[in-house]
Simulated assay, not measured.
Amino acid sequence: MAHIDYYFTPLSPFTYLAGSRLEDMAAAHGATITYKPIDIMALFAATGGTPPKDRHPNRQVYRMQELERRGKLSGLPITLKPAHWPTNAAPACYAIIAAQNAGTGDVGKLAHSLMAACWAQEKDIADEKVIKECLTAAGFSDDLTSTGLLVGAEVFAKNLEDAVAAGAFGAPFYITDSDQRFWGHDRLDDLQAHLEGRI
């Protein structure tokens, strides 16, 4: 059975635009997923990346055009300049980690609902109320925002170390148990081909 370590942040619009494709292909191929939310700015700093606001204007213009195109192609609604972006993603990431540990609901649905809250619904994913709503909708207890805080913080820090050690440098980043690495939602077709044994 294949396994995928999934490094991501709810702050990434391209991760949001992947929708549920990762979960769908994992289910189709009997693969398992470990969700590893990360501090994307810390990952950039550790691996030579540049935050969007510090990129050359040419790259910033291209990014906005690409987001608009990818939004239309994905069929997912997206706000190109959300009211609450960037924000502190740590509380949402802690909740995802706590939910994965709890194992009682749908982690993929939780992660995507938090991204949708940011990128489509103009909500602040640092707001405990928003996180609680997403937890409940995905089948988890909303008290994970408090009971999972300590473990969430510890694992969140370790996820960053794991990401750097494993070779990740952006989000979304998918790494299989055979150390095949795929960066970006636009590489999900390649990941699928790998799972099918075609590459």
Rank of each mutant, 00 (worst) to 15 (best):
32 T>Y: 01
32 T>I: 05
32 T>N: 07
33 I>V: 15
34 T>H: 03
36 K>L: 12
37 P>M: 01
37 P>H: 05
38 I>T: 08
38 I>G: 01
38 I>W: 06
40 I>K: 03
40 I>C: 05
41 M>C: 10
41 M>H: 09
42 A>G: 10
42 A>V: 07
43 L>Q: 04
44 F>T: 05
44 F>C: 05
45 A>L: 06
47 T>E: 06
47 T>Q: 09
48 G>V: 06
49 G>H: 01
50 T>R: 04
50 T>H: 02
51 P>H: 06
52 P>S: 11
52 P>Q: 04
52 P>Y: 09
52 P>L: 13
54 D>A: 15
54 D>S: 11
58 N>L: 10
59 R>K: 13
59 R>S: 12
60 Q>G: 07
61 V>E: 09
62 Y>I: 08
63 R>F: 09
64 M>N: 09
65 Q>R: 14
65 Q>H: 13
65 Q>N: 12
66 E>S: 14
67 L>E: 01
67 L>A: 05
68 E>M: 11
69 R>P: 10
70 R>N: 13
71 G>A: 15
71 G>D: 09
73 L>M: 13
74 S>Q: 09
75 G>R: 00
75 G>I: 04
75 G>S: 03
76 L>M: 15
77 P>N: 15
77 P>C: 11
77 P>D: 13
78 I>V: 15
78 I>N: 04
78 I>L: 13
79 T>M: 14
79 T>Y: 11
80 L>E: 05
81 K>M: 14
81 K>W: 10
81 K>V: 15
83 A>F: 15
84 H>P: 00
88 N>T: 11
88 N>V: 12
89 A>V: 11
90 A>M: 15
94 Y>R: 13
94 Y>G: 00
94 Y>I: 08
95 A>E: 00
96 I>D: 03
98 A>H: 03
98 A>E: 00
98 A>F: 05
99 A>P: 03
99 A>S: 14
100 Q>E: 13
100 Q>L: 08
102 A>R: 01
103 G>H: 08
106 D>C: 07
107 V>G: 02
107 V>I: 15
108 G>T: 08
109 K>V: 10
109 K>L: 15
110 L>E: 02
111 A>D: 02
111 A>S: 14
111 A>C: 14
112 H>Y: 15
112 H>T: 07
112 H>N: 14
113 S>P: 00
115 M>N: 03
116 A>D: 08
118 C>H: 03
119 W>P: 02
120 A>L: 04
120 A>S: 12
120 A>D: 03
121 Q>I: 00
121 Q>V: 06
124 D>A: 07
